[in-house]
Simulated assay, not measured.
Amino acid sequence: MLVGEGVFPIVMDAKGNAIAEVPATGWNLSGTVQGEGKLAGTPSLFIRLATCNLRCIWQMDDGSFCRCDTAYASFHPDDKKAWTVEEIVKVVKHNIGAMQHVVITGGEPLLQKKGVLALCKSIKEELNLHITIETNGTIFDQELTQFVDLFSISPKLSNSVPSAQKLKFYNEAETGSSRFHHEVRRNLNALQSYIDTAQDLQLKFVVAKQSDADEITKDYLKVLQRYNKNDIMLMPLGATQHEITKSNPIVLQMCLQNGWKYTPRIHIDIFGSKQGV
């Protein structure tokens, strides 16, 4: 079940016919760049899956709230559509061009792990592309690790819990009680399984407050084992350039103080808060 553009940005359909609409990038070209993490700047096609089990809302250092920057895929995935694995692979094949990377994102892709497994297997066997999966790390699937080159895992800090106050601000209903308990949202067993079996990974923490450093260390890094410190990355909170500008000084200082890596958010730098880029 894909959402929004499904596979994007693209200029050809599953039959290899040109699409009339120009991609959201504004260019009559397929592809964009990976905006975050180790592969930031890498030309890629994206596949966006619908629904999420967490639906995050953060509070910034100044007290303001910031909702997930892909809320259309997590909070209200109304524009969702069922795609077959064959259809997705054909669209990727006709649009991949000189690119070598595909990013499967969400929402939370592992909620559809059987379909994602079949998709990754087909992409590897038919197109032999590099596959990144972006996940919150609450769900693990052993079989999937053999087909995924990079797991981009974003463990959620307690600041991301969608409290009643935050939901009221966005006129959202309180549904799915597990979303509101940080200990349920922090699946250390799943994270450790990724560390032990993934071909490559990054642990990418979204940061907004000075206190986040203590939580990252105490609740994650002192508990998890055998991870590579070079895989620990911090990303400034923000769905807009203005919000990221507010978060950036906190994140940069935290990286310097702890020896963690900083990751940019290239899509917002280039396109702003725009879907399908």
Rank of each mutant, 00 (worst) to 15 (best):
P162A: 03
P162D: 03
S163V: 15
S163I: 12
A164G: 02
Q165L: 02
Q165A: 12
Q165Y: 05
K166M: 09
K166S: 10
L167C: 14
K168N: 15
K168M: 11
F169P: 00
F169R: 06
Y170I: 04
Y170D: 06
N171S: 13
N171E: 08
N171R: 14
E172P: 14
A173I: 03
E174F: 13
E174G: 09
T175H: 09
T175F: 08
S177R: 00
S178Y: 10
R179M: 14
R179T: 10
F180G: 11
F180E: 08
H181L: 06
V184R: 04
V184K: 05
R185W: 11
R185S: 09
R186Q: 05
N187Q: 13
N189T: 01
N189S: 06
N189E: 08
N189A: 08
L191V: 08
L191K: 08
Q192G: 13
S193G: 09
Y194Q: 05
Y194E: 08
I195N: 06
I195G: 06
I195K: 05
D196C: 06
T197Q: 05
T197E: 05
A198Q: 02
D200I: 00
D200H: 02
D200V: 01
D200T: 01
Q202W: 03
L203C: 05
K204D: 00
K204T: 00
K204H: 02
K204P: 07
V206I: 14
A208E: 00
A208G: 15
K209D: 00
K209A: 00
K209H: 03
Q210M: 02
Q210G: 06
Q210R: 10
Q210I: 04
S211A: 02
S211T: 06
D212P: 10
D212F: 06
A213S: 07
A213D: 02
A213N: 00
E215Q: 04
E215L: 03
E215W: 11
E215G: 10
I216F: 03
T217H: 09
T217F: 02
T217G: 00
K218G: 03
K218P: 07
D219S: 13
D219E: 13
Y220S: 06
Y220C: 07
V223I: 11
V223Y: 11
V223T: 11
Q225F: 15
R226T: 14
R226L: 15
Y227R: 13
Y227E: 12
Y227L: 11
N228M: 15
N228F: 15
K229F: 14
K229D: 15
K229R: 14
D231F: 04
I232D: 05
M233T: 08
M233R: 11
M235K: 03
M235Q: 10
P236T: 09
L237S: 06
L237D: 00
T240N: 08
Q241C: 11
Q241V: 13
Q241S: 12
